[in-house]
Design a protein around this nucleic acid. Sequence first.
DNA 1: TTGAAAACACAAAAATTTTCGATATTTTTT
DNA 2: AAAAAATATCGAAAATTTTTGTGTTTTCAA
Lengths: 156, 156
Amino acid sequence: MKVNDNGIYIDGIDKKILRALMEDARTPILEIARHVGISGAAIHQRLKKLEKSGLLAGSKFIINPKVLGYTTMAFVGVYLDKAISNPEAVKQLQKIPEVIECHYTTGNWSIFIKILTKDNEHLMHVLNSEIQSIKGVSRTETFISLQQQINRQIKI
Amino acid sequence: MKVNDNGIYIDGIDKKILRALMEDARTPILEIARHVGISGAAIHQRLKKLEKSGLLAGSKFIINPKVLGYTTMAFVGVYLDKAISNPEAVKQLQKIPEVIECHYTTGNWSIFIKILTKDNEHLMHVLNSEIQSIKGVSRTETFISLQQQINRQIKI
DNA sequence: TTGAAAACACAAAAATTTTCGATATTTTTT
DNA sequence: AAAAAATATCGAAAATTTTTGTGTTTTCAA
């Protein structure tokens, strides 16, 4: 019981620590300690180890876009013609703040992105004025997310 | 200079605070204070306000799935036949840990999901044994993300 | 069974967060 | 325009949390 295929072994205590912090990165170590039944120092030590292993990739404050009026999420499949390279297109997409994810995918599209806009009008503007105007983008297919029903990280 | 359409006004200092914490939820208040030029107590008070406004939706530790061997991300468009209701399908999808996002979308599919698996074999298993076996799922279309090139939150 | 390494506990030290009263600033009311 | 009220900030103290030593216990492999 030392390492798994990927170089790190996570036991039940590690899992409890991770689950608590994945839920709320501000959970005090001592609270976790009380919950799992070992000392705070031991938790701390385990966290260092998890961090060193690379499993812990950092922490983020999550903001609620709706409060800022961003209520429309959409997925967009982008067709690129051969004129433009994928990295060049991504570079352009980086500049569009509404683009929050970008994937290089198999299948119909060259690029698949997730975008967040205030409303349909804003969405239309991003599609027509921002994305379509990138050199090499020939066509797009848009799917609006009417509701996001699941949003979570990998299960530990 | 009080509120915007959505009930909250975020000034430049708030933005700096948020940007720091969105990047790393563990950034010390005093470090932010030094950076923006007001006292730690003031930062603290602003954070309380941002929290109360609902803009701050919490914090999360981010784990790197690759370290656990999860290297394959895919998007799946799911066709449902009328026999099953959307909520019922979502309920079933909830039980599949590999499903990390689920959207109710416009367009071809009824449901659009993001899944994370160890490899293609694992992906195939989730598709064939888990998702296809949900009552009412008639067909799926899968797009594998060969590389995720952008992953960020809304720009503040 | 033994020895080394890893995990742990306890307690002190360091760092961070939270609170609080006093000003100061801004906004609203009169 | 002045007065009143509401907000925001500050500095310092208090409370909490994290981090660091040191020594003990546990684990595991030889």
